[in-house]
């Protein structure tokens, strides 16, 4: 399995940045950067990361099962993450989450039939002072109101 030239450069640097013989350390960052490029953590990817980091596929699997951002099936092109933790909760985050479910027609960790959107109710993402907050892929959206959220989802659909 090969990645884009940029990612290949990143990965070869990554494998060298840890102390000698400690390539296992690259497992988590390699998985997440690879997932961003190929879409999800497939069997093939697990085996590839295991090979590159000189660990067994099982050692990669146990990591994949632990970290919430690693997905073993494809998510939508736009992964909509609504935080409902305390600071967001008390400023209306549950309403936003319900709104997203309704507008997208999907539930938690589900993907729309066209593959454009997926939805996830997430834990605190570090935007508490600008709550409620939503993250689409890696982009933060702060002080989200139902109107702003509606506009955002409409724009994303158009952007596709």
């Amino acid at each position: 399995m090969t990645f884009s030239p940029e990612l290949e450069v990143k990965f070869s640097k990554m494998l060298e940045c840890y102390p000698a013989g400690r390539t296992r350390s690259a497992v988590v960052p390699m998985l997440i950067f690879a997932q961003d490029e190929v879409g999800h953590i497939s069997r093939e990817l697990v085996e590839e990361v295991a090979k590159r980091c000189k660990v067994t596929p099982l050692q990669v699997d146990e990591v994949v099962g632990y970290y919430s951002m690693l997905h073993t099936r494809p998510m939508g092109k736009f992964h909509v993450q609504v935080c409902t933790n305390i600071s967001c909760l008390i400023l209306g985050a549950e309403d936003l989450y319900e709104q997203a479910k309704e507008k997208l027609g999907i539930g938690n960790k589900e993907v729309t039939a066209d593959g454009i959107f997926s939805l996830e109710e997430v834990e605190c993402m570090g935007a508490c002072s600008w709550a409620p907050a939503v993250q689409v892929n890696y982009d933060f959206h702060h002080n989200v109101t139902p109107e702003k959220f509606d506009r955002l989802l409409t724009e994303l659909r158009k952007a596709n």
Partner: peptide, 26 residues
Amino acid sequence: YTHSGAGAYECGEETALLDSIEGKRG
């Protein structure tokens, strides 16, 4: 060097963070 996590509150606990940076579950 920077090192990316992948979503786990527990990794903010310093020894879990160390396990995580070693490529294991936190």
